[in-house]
């Protein structure tokens, strides 16, 4: 009964991963036979200033859309974990960007960031603040991209935190209150440790999606201006499907995989490993 799913995963996941690894040691342009060139692609990738920029940008983007966004999401979840009458309404509002296509929301934000007729500059000028060329400024393009990333991803993080908060044992808190622990103290010594499994899950899924941000960049900036918003995924796409350097692109994709693997394992060590005992 498991055979159809297993075969599917073997053909479309297992073989491709092995193939990506093998091809990463070759020079291959699809038209001619792949030629073995050792680790040259990896040397090229780490020597290429644009790909290095892509790695740095990916890390910066991940920093803001993972730990920073998680903190905001937890804050919103804590606010919603009270006796609010409109809780469902708020939860829905925060979650909607999550279910809509990144291409679609990126187009909407492209229009919001429009320097001449965009909503953002109109709101800023209402408050007497200067207008900006958001997406064509080397200073503002990355923050603009990150903002959309946080905006779209916050719903899922919040939702998982909210579900976890609601399943926390109430009696522990009663005991802590009786013992005179302040609410801040309760948060740091009870809530945060109890949320560890949720934090681990949110972290892993968010890191995976942050490192694979592509649609946003494709629509908003095309990696520009001056490579200030290019990401590892975008460089992989360009190498493979614009320059047809397939072997090189595979090496870049293996580097991406290794980044994710390290982050996941490190987090498991710090976070998940401990919760495994419960």
């Amino acid at each position: 009964m498991v055979a159809p799913a297993f075969l599917h995963a073997l053909i479309w996941i297992g073989i491709p991963v092995v193939a990506a690894f093998v091809l990463s040691f070759t020079s291959y342009d699809v038209l001619t036979q792949p030629r073995f060139i050792g680790i040259q692609n990896y040397l090229d990738a780490f020597g290429d200033p644009v790909f290095r920029r892509g790695m740095l940008n990916t890390l910066v983007y991940a920093f803001f859309t993972v730990p920073v966004a998680m903190a905001i999401a937890l804050l919103i979840a804590l606010m919603l974990d009270t006796q609010l009458r409109a809780r469902a309404l708020f939860r829905t509002a925060v979650f909607i960007p999550q279910v809509t296509a990144t291409i679609a929301v990126a187009l909407v934000w492209l229009w919001i960031y429009d320097p001449r007729s965009g909503l953002l500059n109109a709101v800023l000028s209402f408050f007497g603040l200067p207008a900006q060329n958001w997406l064509s400024s080397t200073t503002w393009a990355m923050p603009a991209v990150i903002t959309v990333g946080i905006w779209q991803g916050i719903g899922l993080k919040m939702l998982i935190y909210l579900a976890a908060l609601q399943s926390l044992p109430k009696d522990v808190y009663e005991a802590a209150s009786v013992d005179g622990a302040s609410r801040t103290r309760q948060f740091f010594s009870l809530t945060l440790p109890l949320l560890r499994p949720a934090t681990f899950f949110v972290f892993v899924t968010s890191v995976i999606s942050a490192f694979q941000a592509f649609d946003l960049i494709y629509i908003l900036t095309d990696g520009g201006p001056a490579n200030t918003t290019t990401m590892m995924t975008y460089e992989i796409y360009k190498s493979a499907f614009r320059e047809f350097r397939v072997g090189y692109a595979c090496a870049q994709s293996i580097v991406l995989f290794v980044f994710l693997l390290i982050l996941t394992l490190a987090n498991r060590r710090l976070n998940g490993g401990d919760s495994g005992r419960h």
Binding site: A5, P16, L256
Partner: peptide, 24 residues
């Protein structure tokens, strides 16, 4: 082993498999 395989597959980034998928 099959279960571990599926969990591992969960971890594979789209961008690591998409080029060979395209070639297939």
């Amino acid at each position: 082993l099959v279960f571990i395989g599926f969990v591992a597959a969960l971890m594979i980034p789209t961008y690591t498999k998409i080029i060979p998928e395209f070639l297939i």
